[in-house]
Design a protein around this nucleic acid. Structure first.
Length: 589
RNA sequence: GGGGGUGUAGCUCAGCUGGUUAGAGCGCUGGCCUGUCAAGCCAGAGGUCGCGGGUUCGAGCCCCGUCACUCCCGCCA
């Protein structure tokens, strides 16, 4: 809480209540509003704590009144006056300080202000670029202040919760080494080492392993991370992770610790997170929800219809099944009477998501069945669909027949789309763990295996022997924390054996030389007494965005960047002088 | 890299089928006003219609290009 200590104020604006009646106060802040009645002037004075009405009456102080006639919105002023209860009939119940007002005895202009580029008040709809360019004005508005304050509370709660559990906060380097794979690095030229570059960390990844090897046992950091990739509503080139790592743990230890901490953190948003959270294997998440970050605020799960259509005469389904594919469907309750054009729009969604087409059956509220494919389906098949998907009149069945992963992913997209259209998402937060991710995934374009989480993930013990033989079958100790369909965090148990780490890198197609060059320091460290360890990293911006109900992480970052990575306030990025380039041995076209 | 949307006064927007001097609300400036809190009333100022080119007798509106913002796909181990 803001208070008046260590300042020339006696109180802060938002704290004044009827208890303060008769007190002489000194306040300072910004002029939020000025209502000039000619012979009486009201000024709403604002600081971080809130707003209080100040009354300038020439009968009290002619000098102050003259000052009040000059002042304008966003001027910075100091006032001295007396708190009094507002006269009968003038109380403002919409204001925290609405029972009282300050009768001003003297007023000082601390600084004038140009007319602000937009009005400083709640609910404005000003273009974001303008708000960013004048972010220091924008942040005087209550929504921005509230978001940043929530972020502060969440951050502090993480610190407290983790400190109470024995975690040490340790800072890791910002100027570090580029590593292959992952996102594009931001790079920084080295003046003292011509032609060499630092990279900004994509996450503290390797350092947290080194801290475990160093015996710190439990580490955390509110860590800034940098990734030079295209932006999104939930992605900025620099963002913040709550990075956590623990020694001598199994996966379950990390999950339980995180659940306890998250329970405490979510309280800052007045939410009682029920723990333990549900756990869903990656394969089950894909099978039931068509997503590795399922939104559990609504049902509409995917169901297999492969058995129903196993002997179908309908060539599209039969062909897909014969080719090793699956037929699956979802049942959208209450969309059975949708217009043809509205359903056709869904077909386009399916095509965009990678399907060859969308099969649908509309069961109207009147008991009719409408479907372009009905004539190809037997009575038994139709009955199978009704039974499997628990169809009722008024439902719309959407079906996809394709390779198993395509079928799941497309239906996953349709499921989300229908939930939005039908407004099915429940209020509140629905969190879960998605666990047991495959160790590797096949990159068809580059014809090689990629790490699913990262190259340091520990495979299941029972899959270690067959790692090279069947990389695609190996599962790993990895887990994502998913809230409302957003990936809030993810982590893994780490490989702590140099030998196993070499094998994992080899499967990823990283040569021994490259492994030595890029990760030699890690391999060396792993050979010098590395304890079993694992951890997790949470996306702080995304979490706060979620808790704040914001639609972009820009809303919870004090000075965000535009979608081209620019900062309209400072003008970054910008050119530098020839001298600066020369110093770092760079030439620019 | 690709697709969609937006760009007109300080802010938010309207501007019809291409037609005379581009409008509104808020804000701003000045005046009046002693109980307002979205104060009220009166008057006023304020425009490179993102930018460049083209079509046309005539372009805010049509065409081409370009820039910025924004959403999505790719990308983000």
């Amino acid at each position: 809480m803001l208070d008046a200590r260590y300042s020339f104020r006696s109180h802060v604006c938002g704290d004044l209540r009827s208890d303060n009646t008769e007190e002489t106060v000194t306040l300072a802040g910004w002029v939020a509003k000025r209502r000039d009645h000619g012979g009486l002037i009201f000024v709403d004075l604002r600081d971080r704590s809130g707003v209080v009405q100040c009354v300038f009456d020439p009968d009290t102080s002619g000098e102050a009144f003259v000052t009040a006639e000059r002042i304008r919105p966003e001027w910075v002023i100091k006032i001295e006056g007396t708190v009094r209860k507002r006269p009968d009939g003038t109380v403002n119940p919409g204001m925290a300080t609405g029972d009282v007002e300050v009768v001003v005895v003297s007023a000082t202009v601390l600084n004038m202000s140009e007319t602000p580029p937009f009005e400083v008040e709640p609910g404005i709809d000003t273009d974001e670029t303008t708000r960013m360019r004048y972010r220091y004005v924008d942040m005087r508005r209550p929504e921005v202040l509230a978001a940043i304050q929530l972020r502060d509370r969440v951050t502090q709660r993480f610190r407290k919760s983790l400190e109470h559990r024995g975690f040490l906060e340790v800072e890791t380097p910002i100027l570090t080494k580029s590593t292959p794979e992952g996102a594009r690095d931001f790079i920084v030229p080295s003046r003292m080492n011509p032609g060499s570059f630092y990279a900004l960390p994509q996450s503290p990844q390797l350092f947290k392993q080194l801290l475990m090897i160093g015996g710190f046992d439990r580490y955390y950091q509110i860590a800034r991370c940098f990734r030079d990739e295209d932006l999104r509503a939930d992605r900025q080139p620099e963002f913040t992770q709550v990075d956590i790592e623990m020694s001598f743990v199994e996966q379950e230890d990390v999950l339980l610790m995180m659940e306890d901490v998250m329970h405490e953190v979510m309280k800052e948003a007045d939410f009682d997170l029920k723990v333990p959270l549900p756990r869903l294997a990656y394969s089950e998440a894909m099978d039931r929800f068509g997503s590795d970050r399922p939104d559990l605020r609504f049902g509409m799960e995917l169901h297999s219809l492969t058995d129903v259509f196993a002997t179908s005469e309908f060539k599209v389904f039969a062909g897909a099944i014969a080719a090793g594919g699956r037929v699956k469907g979802i049942c959208a309750r209450g969309a059975g009477d949708w217009s043809r054009s509205r359903i056709d729009a869904l077909n386009q969604v399916a095509l965009d998501a990678g399907a060859k087409g969308l099969a649908w059956i509309a069961f109207t509220g009147d008991g009719e069945v409408k479907s372009p494919i009905a004539k190809f389906l037997s009575e038994g098949e139709m009955a199978g669909v009704r039974e499997t998907l628990h169809v009722q009149p008024g439902d719309l069945v959407l079906m996809i027949a394709d390779a198993p992963d395509v079928t799941n992913e497309v239906l996953g997209v349709l499921r989300l789309r229908m939930a939005d259209e039908l407004e099915l998402k429940r209020e509140g937060f629905e969190a879960l763990w998605v666990v047991d991710f495959p160790m590797f995934k096949w990159d068809a374009d580059e014809e090689r295996w990629n790490a699913n989480h990262h190259p340091f993930t520990m495979p299941f013990v029972e899959h270690i022997d067959s790692l090279e033989e069947k990389p695609g079958d190996a599962l790993s100790y990895s887990y994502d924390l998913v809230v409302n369909g957003l990936e809030i965090g993810g982590g893994t148990l780490r490989i702590h054996s140099a030998e196993l780490q070499r094998r994992a890198l080899a499967i990823l197609g990283i040569s021994e030389e490259e492994a030595e060059e890029k990760f030699g320091f890690l391999l060396e460290a792993l050979s010098l007494g590395a304890p079993p360890h694992g951890g997790i990293a949470l996306g702080l911006d995304r979490l706060v965005m979620l808790l704040a109900g914001a639609s972009s992480i820009r809303d919870v970052i004090a000075f965000p960047k535009t979608s081209s990575g620019a900062d309209p306030l400072t003008g970054a990025p910008d050119t530098v002088s020839q001298r600066q380039l020369k110093d770092v041995h760079l030439k620019v076209d």
